[in-house]
């Protein structure tokens, strides 16, 4: 990584931390965007707390998606589960086809307002990229490598943990990264059903016609997305480099 790239990343991180911990420092920049003496900085709650709960729900939902999608991906690539591949694909695809807003509409009457419906929407929406990448990663392992593993007396479990998963890891990580980024943006609509998150700031801006609020919410989400995307990308590249693959092959 070049020195310039490092500096840019550190600067973005510092900017994010400074903004969510002491937003008033940036009031001067947002003031020109307000009208009628409206507040320049979101004042209906702590930006830090909103950011943390936003990240928390994204992380929880992605973790849940990862567990289910990877497990499913492993299951349908085993000899016993192969016939369930078309079914699993359809199910996961449905999760992606349903717009999250529709999921919220259906989920609220069932589980009530708050974080639960948002969690469900993000969880369903995040399954597809992880599942497809798990499949791609696992089916991409060279048959020769697997033949050698079998010939040396590795049982099915040892082949999975010691050979297949480590080799599929960069591709699976790429799926998780995609899913996290989608969820970070999508989680903002959770605020329409009273989930704590950065959507609150945007919605407050929309309701009071305050462009400064909208921009602040959007800006924090965008910075989060860029930084997380970058960090996970680094992890992928590190695992891929170990395998001797060019980075662009998995990008």
């Amino acid at each position: 990584m070049s020195a310039r790239a490092v500096i840019l990343r550190v600067a973005a991180l510092l900017l994010l931390v400074a903004f969510v911990t002491a937003p008033q420092l940036f009031a001067f920049a947002f003031a020109p965007l307000t009208a009628n003496d409206a507040p320049a900085i979101y004042n209906q709650g702590s930006l830090l707390a909103l950011t943390l709960s936003h990240v928390r729900i994204v992380v929880l939902a992605t973790l849940a998606s990862t567990v289910l999608a990877v497990t499913l991906g492993i299951f349908v690539t085993r000899p016993g589960g192969r016939e369930f591949l078309p079914l699993s694909r359809s199910l996961v695809n449905i999760g992606q086809t349903f717009p999250p807003i529709a999921v919220l509409a259906i989920a609220v009457p069932l589980v009530g307002f708050g974080e639960k419906p948002t969690f469900i929407a993000l969880f369903l929406y995040g399954l597809l990229p992880i599942f497809e990448n798990t499949l791609a990663g696992l089916t991409d392992v060279s048959p020769r490598t697997l033949e050698a593993a079998r010939g040396m007396g590795m049982n099915a479990r040892q082949r999975l943990w010691q050979v297949e998963l480590p080799l599929a890891l960069p591709v699976i990580l790429a799926g998780i990264r995609l899913s996290v980024i989608i969820s970070l943006g999508t989680a903002t609509i959770g605020s329409t059903v009273a989930a704590k998150g950065l959507g609150e700031v945007i919605i407050a801006g929309l309701q009071s016609n305050n462009v400064a609020f909208i921009l602040q919410g959007g800006l924090v989400v965008a910075l989060l997305a860029v930084l997380i995307h970058d960090g996970l990308g680094l992890a992928e590249r590190a695992t891929a480099r170990r395998l001797g693959r060019p980075v662009d092959e998995i990008a």
């Binding site: 020769r144 490598t145 033949e147 050698a148 079998r150 395998l243």
Partner: peptide
């Protein structure tokens, strides 16, 4: 156990890339 006791080399070797 049998395969632990028998060496096996294939064309292309199937070395573990990771």
């Amino acid at each position: 156990e049998l395969r632990h006791r028998i060496g096996y080399v294939i064309q292309g070797y199937g070395l573990f890339p990771h």
